[in-house]
Each structure stands twice: as C-alpha cells, then as structure tokens.
Nucleic acid binder design. Structure first.
Lengths: 221, 221
DNA sequence: TGTCTCATAGGATGCGCATCATGTCAAACC
DNA sequence: GGTTTGACATGATGCGCATCCTATGAGACA
C-alpha cells in the first residue's frame, strides 16, 4: 500500500541502518550526513524531515545499532551457569570475525573513545545502552527480575575486558599480534570467572597456577 | 644562545606537546592543525616546516604522548612480585583522576577507537607503542633481558582490562556508575592476578570496600 | 476534483580545515 | 658585509560539511 507514514518510516529505517554502520566504522565525527543519506537512497535535503540535527541522528543510530545487535550476540546463553555464560559470550565477542566487521560490530566498543569525548547527552545514551547490555548479560531469560549486584559487577568487569580486548586487537597492525590479544583475553575471561566447580564468583583465591593454553583460537559466529 | 636549530627544536617540542594533548582530548580527526599551532604559540603556516602533513604529526604526537607518560605511570614497581606489580599499576591507572584528565592521560586508551579506524601507518605506530608499554610492564627494571611470554600474556590481558575499564568509565554520564566501573575493574585485576602469598589465614582483601581510589593523580608519591 | 500537507530534492550559505604560495626577517655562512 | 637559508607569518584555495531555503510532486482529505 505504501501509505505516507509507512514510506517515511521505511526511509527512517534506512537512514538509521546506514548511519549505524558508518557510525561504527568512522566514528561520531566521521559519519557525515550526506553520505549517510546517500547510502539510504536519499539526498541530504531530506535529512531534516527526520532529525533536527546530527547529534539527534547519532543518538538514535547508536541506540539502533545496539538494539539490532544485542539479541544476536546474546544468543541463547540460557540455563548455563554464570561463569559459563560469560565464557561463552566472551568467546563469541573476542573473535577475528567480530574484530574485522567494524560496520556491524558492538557499538559500545566501536564508540567508546568517541563517547568519552562527547557531550553529556550522548554519554547518557551510551550509559543507557551499556546498562541495557549489562542487564541482558545478567538476566537474559526472565526480563522482570532484579539483577544480582554481584553479577552486575562481574558483567562490568567482563564488558571492560571485552571492549578493551577488541579495541586493542583492532588498533594493532600485525594480525598475529592482534590474534594473540583476542586469544589472551578469551583466556582471561576464563581466569576471571573460573568454571563453577572451582568456586563461586567472589572472594575466592583461584590457585595461582597460570593455567594458560586451553585456547581454541578458531572463530565461529 | 638560541641557535637556529635550537629554536626550531623548541618549537617542535611545543607543537608536539600541544598536539599530544589535543589528540587525546579530541581524537585523531578532532585535533586540527591551526588550533594546535596556536596553542604552541605559532601560526598554521609554520606547520609545514616541521611536518609534511597531518598524519605525520599525529604519529609523532602519539609517540610523544606515550614517551612522556610511560615513565611517570610506571613509577617504581620494582622488586615487587608480578601480581602486586600489576595490581599497583591497575590501581594507579583506574582512578577518577586519570579518567578526568583526558589531555594528559594514557594515549593507548584515549585513541584506541581512533586507531581501530585509522590506516595501517598509524596502526603500526600504535602497535609499536603498545608493545613498548607491555614491555615496560613486564620488565621495568633491566631493559635488556627478554621477557617471559607468560608475563606478556598477563600484561596483554591487564592492558585490555585497563583500557576497557577507563574507556567505559569515561563514556558514561553518571559519576556514581563511572566510579563503580573503575572500582570493579580494579578488583578484577586482583581477581585475575591474585597475590602470590594469598593465604586464607591472612585474609587481606584490600580493595573490596567501596574504593576511595588513591587519588594521587599521577607520580609524586 | 481540488486544495493541503509534507517527505524529498536540490541548491545555497557559511564555516572549518588541510594544504599551498608568497613574503619577511634574522641567523648562518662566505 | 653581503648573500643565502629556512623558520615563521599571512593570505589564498578549495573542499567537506552542517544547516537553511525553496521548489515539487504525490498522497491525504474534503
């Protein structure tokens, strides 16, 4: 039928899709309006029918990027123990595939430095999305229940490791080194959250043996 | 006496200082030539007496930033055990003071996202500096000796956690949440690298209580 | 059928920026 | 002392970009 508002909504969606890609690939200041609109099949003039300014677009596109990706990379981590859930997520996150696919990657990592330099409005959006992701990590199954603060702390450390790991892996030129960074970080997740039988998540002293080398370094998505 | 080349060298130093600050505060694309030159007490025309283009400046300024900061934040972690060295470094790195002082902060964290989006030339510089920092973490004392690969792996995971932690803490708007991120990451360092003499009898859980990050911003202790 | 609305097109404007071109003056060198 | 060199200043040049303005054409609506 293509009613008037349907068309606009479709346009908006294309704009957000294009913008979300370019935002991650080129950063907050890099993703310019005209190219985004062109990628969306429109011209720059149409932009202001959808947003008041570039900042609004950035916020909306950032939200869109995470809304789009979160379910995909959450997958079904259900029913697993807490440490194995983190381990599984870490193995999915810290891959060469995710590293190399900037345009479709985790926006929290891709725009971390940018958010750090941005104004309070964008930081609020970033924070909101980060909280949503942390929440999703903590309780992917029953949406309503409050989350365990200890788990939240675990999830924060986990996210920091993942974001830092993939950022470093991307920032480096040598693919071997980059791969090493990813592998080491995957192992670090395991060391930080040892499998259930070891001991519960907090206040434990995991034997100081440096158990390295249980690294399957192949990536799958 | 102010010989000709002395003057040029002094100018270069001012340019690098100004550029290194703005680079960290505004990113690779944000740090423009004219403002940098002005901050250095020169005009934009003088720029090309020192560099061929903006990329050269960015690379040099990035190097300069780390050369300038590395000794300061390494401090004297000598003679301590490996885990306590990392713990000490983590406590120094993951502070609100470091978080808030973008212009003088760790360039590896401030420019991680930017490097990820940059060309191979800049990534090479980033990688080189990252390797130097990792090396400095592993063997701050005797420069010559080869580094233990296991320690290098530890240092990589440590850096990832630190970079991710401070990036997230900066990207977020709520100061309480930001503080929590820093605190959790400091604890995570400890969890990842438990102190060697961590005996159950002598349970000293130093960082467990709500932070009060040792706010001595950098150096001077 | 005829108005109205509004998403879109296509300039136009003005600014910031990297880079280049030209001028200047003091130190360096003969 | 006279010439040369080169760091620096000043002023283009041209591009990319955000934003604004105006026109248009097709759906909405009467």
């Amino acid at each position: 039928m293509a009613s008037r508002s349907d068309l606009k909504e479709a346009s908006l969606r294309r704009i957000l899709t294009a913008s979300a890609s370019r935002l991650r690939a080129e950063g907050l200041s890099g993703a310019a309006i005209a190219p985004v609109m062109q990628e969306a099949g429109l011209t720059h003039g149409a932009f202001y029918a959808h947003f008041n300014n570039k900042e609004e677009l950035a916020a909306a596109a950032f939200r869109f990027a995470l809304l789009d990706n979160r379910p995909r990379w959450m997958g079904q981590a259900r029913k697993e123990s807490w440490p194995s859930r983190l381990l599984r997520l870490g193995k999915r996150y810290l891959t060469t595939a995710h590293r190399d696919d900037l345009t479709d990657s985790c926006a929290l990592a891709a725009l971390a430095s940018d958010a750090a330099r941005s104004n309070s409005a964008f930081k609020k959006v970033y924070e909101e999305e980060l909280r949503k992701s942390l929440h999703a990590i903590c309780v992917p199954l029953d949406e309503g229940s409050p989350i365990d603060p200890a788990r939240l702390d675990d999830a924060i450390a986990f996210m920091a490791l993942c974001v830092g790991g993939i950022s470093l892996a991307r920032a480096v030129d040598d693919p071997v080194f980059s791969q090493q960074i990813l592998t080491v970080c995957r192992q670090a997740v395991q060391r930080m959250f040892p499998p259930d039988n070891a001991s519960p998540t907090h206040l434990e002293v995991p034997d100081q043996a440096r158990n390295r080398d249980e690294a399957q370094s192949h990536d799958h998505r």
